[in-house]
Simulated scan of single mutants.
Amino acid sequence: MKNKSLLAALCLIALAGCVSQGQVDPDVMQIATKPLTCSNKAECDLWWQRAQTWVASNSKYKIETATDSLIQTAGPDGGKRALAYQITRSANPDGTATIGFAAHCDGSLGCKPNPWEAGAQFKEYVRGTTAGAPQSSAAPAQAASDAMHPEAIPGKSATTPNGEAMSQ
C-alpha cells in the first residue's frame, strides 16, 4: 500500500512539473511581443548598436553576419539548447524602423534561456530600459567575432502577434 501511495505522489509531482514547464510569465510575454520600433535615424542607429552588443554578449554562437539590416549568429547546432539569433531592421514608410527578433535552438529538452525571456531581455536592453544598457551611441562593448551565448528549447518557431519569430 505504501508503494502505491508513493508512486501516486511521484506521478502527481511529475505531472505538475510538466504542466508548469512550458508556461511563460504574462509580463514577459507582453514585453517580448511588443513591437520594437525606433522613431528616427539617430535612435534607430543607437538601438541597432545596442542590438548587436546584446547579441554579442548573450549568444553562445558567434555572429556570422552584422550589416545595417541583419545581425545573425551561427547555429543552432544539432541537439544544442543554446539559442541562435536573427535580428532584422526594416525601414517603415513613415521614417521609423522596426527591429525584429527571432531566437531558436535545436535541443530536445527545450531552449536555455527561454526564447520569450530572451526576447523580453533583448527588447528592454535595446530600448535602454534595463541596467547596463548604453545610454549614448558608444561603440559595442564586444567585437562580433568574440560573440558567445548561454544555452537554450528545440527549434520550434512561433510567430508573435507582431510577426516576429520566436522559439517555444
Rank of each mutant, 00 (worst) to 15 (best):
L36A: 01
N92S: 04
M29L: 07
E43L: 04
H149P: 05
D45N: 13
V126Q: 06
A138F: 02
S137A: 11
P134N: 03
Q49N: 14
L83P: 11
L83S: 02
F101Y: 14
L12C: 15
R127H: 09
I31W: 04
S59G: 05
P115V: 01
G119D: 06
S167T: 01
A14L: 15
T73M: 00
A56F: 04
E151D: 08
P150K: 08
Q52G: 13
L36S: 02
A66D: 09
A133Y: 10
C38Q: 03
E64Y: 01
C105G: 15
S5E: 14
I13C: 11
A103N: 12
T130R: 12
A152L: 04
S137R: 05
I71E: 09
P113A: 02
Y61N: 00
W47G: 05
Q30F: 07
I153D: 05
T129N: 11
L7K: 14
S108K: 10
E117I: 08
A147P: 00
P140G: 04
A82C: 13
A8R: 15
I87Y: 11
A51K: 09
A56K: 08
V28R: 01
Q168R: 01
A143S: 06
A138N: 06
K34A: 12
K156L: 05
W47S: 04
T88D: 12
A138L: 06
Q142L: 10
P93K: 14
M166Q: 02
Q121L: 13
E151V: 06
G107W: 07
L70I: 13
A14C: 15
T96A: 05
D25K: 10
D94C: 08
C38V: 03
G155W: 02
C111H: 10
E64A: 12
P26A: 13
T159D: 05
D27W: 00
A42P: 01
V55E: 00
G163Y: 00
K156T: 10
P93E: 12
A8S: 13
I153N: 07
H104T: 15
P154L: 02
F101I: 09
S90F: 04
L70G: 08
Y61Q: 02
A66L: 08
A138P: 01
M166S: 01
I153M: 07
G95C: 07
V55L: 00
S57C: 06
L109W: 09
P35C: 07
M148T: 05
V24C: 01
A120M: 13
E43Q: 14
K34Y: 02
Q135W: 05
E117G: 09
N58R: 06
M148R: 06
A82H: 11
F101N: 06
A8W: 04
K4W: 11
R81Q: 08
T96L: 05
I99F: 07
P150I: 01
V55R: 01
A66R: 10
Q49A: 08
D45T: 10
A138H: 03
L46K: 12
F101H: 09
W48N: 02
S69Y: 11
T53Q: 10
C38I: 02
A103S: 14
S167K: 01
S20T: 15
N58F: 00
A143W: 00
C38G: 15
K123D: 05
S5T: 09
D77S: 11
S69E: 12
C111W: 03
Y85H: 10
S59K: 07
L6R: 14
A56G: 07
A42Q: 12
P161N: 05
E64P: 00
V24S: 01
E43V: 08
P26S: 13
F101S: 08
I71G: 05
I31D: 12
D45G: 03
S57L: 14
